[in-house]
Design a protein around this nucleic acid. Structure first.
Lengths: 222, 222
DNA sequence: CAGGATCCAGACGTGGATCCGT
DNA sequence: ACGGATCCACGTCTGGATCCTG
């Protein structure tokens, strides 16, 4: 265990709260980095910087950022109106999918407990954009019912080889989207007819419709 | 197909012969590289430089360097006395081994036709060491019988989980040796008792006893 | 506005092999 | 001498996500 690894959820949350209000420029200085001009060529910059500041181990496998605590760290880009600008990437979607049970699935393990760190993702120049109040979210029965239903439906499509349905359309809270360097990155899969075909690798994402609800509940309770 | 890819075995051999007698310093200049001080921190330098000069495609999978020609390129480090200084790495040894038939095995496909490029690997300062005469070797029935026997024996040990016998000792021409960054690099395998244990990844190597014979035949015939 | 496309960092695996202690 | 240990390059994969059109 690295020295800086947080020992409890309370410690982790407390550290994250200490960062709220800081600008991206301040974060860059804290970590002795140069802030990128924009995120076009450094899309993961904030997420990776926060991992460093909060003591997450980098280069994780299919497990949460803080395995000991079961907590996943996610940044949440906000519009000026305070709503999520983007969907949230969860994990790659293996094809075929080897996870049989929802509770053992990568999606569940990555979404059961999430430390969300909102930040302003528009209007101001990048260096001046600030972190918002972080909040810990734990999956509740209502969310889980829908996420499990989505997951089950999507995994079924994957394992049946229903390739034409592996689009971003199905799923209420959870969806499949391309996850690759570009659209020429292809993997071989077997379709419903049993024939090998090429498709772009997929990942699981949380729709912003879902994260908007989490934010609203947090605001209501605080 | 890249423009410089050789179109025939004759063209490949002719290109290799044009390099014979050149020093390592000359090769570095030809490829616009700096010659390393020694090979301790650049063990693959000569092999990779020759691939570039002869038009091999880099980053191969489990197939010969020149797939179109079925030819594998191998450097052969020689002592002052003209004997091989080292054994020759062939390929990694998957555990368990998925190749059932010798003729379809990675070892066979990598050793059926080899373009050997000998070079002096001692005595002179590195920059002055020269390439020798390259020669094309094709597996003959006598060699194949023994290599196949070795391969069969080693693959059996691998698939039986006879882990303690996965040493460099068995095999007349072919042997298993560690193939990893270091001895802390471990993989999980299943032993004879069906229990998971950790071992260092292995590779197939040709013993220098074998390559010495190939050299001798080449010298005798030329 | 959201589905499809794209981009960086770092770990990992494989191919290129030689090093080095007993 | 040789069995076990080690080292670099580079392509691929995964985790971090945001970009960008119709």
């Amino acid at each position: 265990m690295r020295p800086f690894y947080p020992n409890s959820i309370e410690q982790l949350l407390s550290r994250a709260q200490a960062l709220s209000g800081l600008s991206l420029l301040a974060l860059a200085k804290l970590t002795q980095q140069v802030l990128p001009q924009d995120f076009r060529h450094a899309k993961g910059w904030l997420g990776q910087t926060l991992e460093q500041l909060l003591g997450a181990t980098s280069g994780n496998l299919a497990q949460p950022d803080f395995p000991h605590l079961g907590v996943e760290l996610k940044t949440l880009p906000l519009t000026l109106r305070g709503t999520p600008k983007e969907s949230t990437y969860i994990c790659t979607a293996p094809i075929p999918n080897p996870d049989f049970h929802w509770r053992q699935s990568r999606v569940y393990l990555k979404t059961a407990k999430i430390l969300w760190v909102p930040f302003l993702a528009e209007a101001l120049p990048l260096p001046e954009r600030q972190l918002g109040q972080p909040f810990l979210w734990q999956m509740d029965a209502t969310s889980e019912a829908i996420l499990q239903q989505d997951w089950t439906e999507l995994v079924e499509k994957i394992n049946l080889g229903a390739v034409s349905h592996l689009s971003a359309h199905p799923g209420q809270y959870l969806q499949l989207r391309p996850k690759a360097a570009n659209s020429k990155t292809l993997i071989q899969v077997v379709n419903q007819q049993g024939n090998p075909i090429s498709i772009v690798p997929k990942g699981f994402y949380l729709r912003s419709q879902f994260t908007r609800q989490l934010l609203a509940k947090f605001y209501a309770g605080s």
